[in-house]
């Protein structure tokens, strides 16, 4: 029988689904976060990620996040990363239970790559947004136990050369947002800042500066959002999505812009 153990199982050879999520659920359900049973009635204390902001600018869209994770009144991490590139043309930022969210993002990244390899073509941007929605929907049971994940998804739509933003609720509802959006505990303050600062004709550099201002305001009023950490040199993460594809803004560039933001605030306080 050793032959049969080493060979590829028959289910691998079966034609059909090009979804990795569906394949994993059938083959190895213990690896799918939403297929795992959650003890009822208990509420866990687990690290939570906080504020994610996305905005459109001339030529594309960006996603940015602060670096703090909290657990009750404690800071669980000063340097957690909450913005990830999903594939060559899209990125996802996550608010909510950090452990579950990061696992979901990893699964989502493999899902997109798997589809591309099996089908020989990429999913449409709307298709990617809907795949993510169905993964969030599967997580509803965990959300009821206090382990909710709320992503913000953005990508560059190759069909009409536009950057688009999609937001989600815990039930898996998927909504296309115009102009800008924010999720997580500091999102109200970030959105308030963007209401005053955002313009449709922002250049790439101005857009990054604007999102850093918004995150600064969120950190100012929300204890769960981390401000720029000048001492340890930990900066927010920003992903750009435009005609050149998806990429993270290098730390050195963020550092320069953060210093400008902080200098501007200091100037304003002195007056």
């Amino acid at each position: 029988m050793s032959d049969d153990e080493a060979r590829l199982p028959a289910s691998y050879l079966r034609p059909g689904s090009s979804s990795f999520n569906d394949f994993l659920r059938a083959e190895r359900p213990e690896l799918v976060p939403s297929a795992r049973p959650v003890p009822v009635g208990e509420r866990l204390e687990a690290p939570h990620g906080t504020t994610i902001v996305a905005l459109q600018y001339a030529g594309g869209v960006l996603v940015a996040g602060d670096r703090r994770a909290t657990m009750g009144n404690l800071i669980a991490s000063h340097s957690i990363q909450k913005v990830f590139l999903a594939d060559d043309w899209s990125a996802v930022g996550i608010a909510g239970t950090a452990g579950v969210a990061i696992e979901l993002v990893r699964l989502f990244q493999v899902e997109l790559e798997h589809y591309e390899k099996i089908e020989g073509a990429m999913l449409s941007l709307r298709g990617k947004a809907n795949r993510l929605a169905s993964m969030i929907r599967g997580n509803l049971g965990m959300a009821l136990q206090g382990l909710a994940v709320v992503p913000l998804f953005a990508g560059y739509d190759l069909d009409d050369a536009t950057g688009r933003i999609y937001s989600y609720d815990v039930t898996g509802g998927c909504y296309e947002e115009r102009d800008y959006h924010a999720v997580g505990s500091g999102s109200l303050f970030a959105r308030g800042a963007l209401k005053k600062l955002w313009r449709p004709e922002l250049t790439t550099a101005e857009a990054v500066r604007t999102v850093l201002e918004a995150l600064y305001d969120a950190a100012d009023d929300d204890s769960a959002t981390g401000g720029p950490d000048l001492g340890r040199r930990i900066w927010p993460t920003v992903a750009l999505l435009d005609g050149e594809g998806a990429r993270m803004v290098p730390d050195a560039e963020i550092e320069d812009l953060v210093e400008q933001v902080v200098a501007g605030r200091r100037e304003a306080a002195r007056r």
């Binding site: 590829l8 990795f20 394949f23 699964l107 790559e113 390899k117």
Partner: peptide, 18 residues
Amino acid sequence: FENLRVAGVRYADLRGYS
């Protein structure tokens, strides 16, 4: 061979994920 190719992608992605 298409069956084998798909099985190979599934094998690789599952292994890389886990």
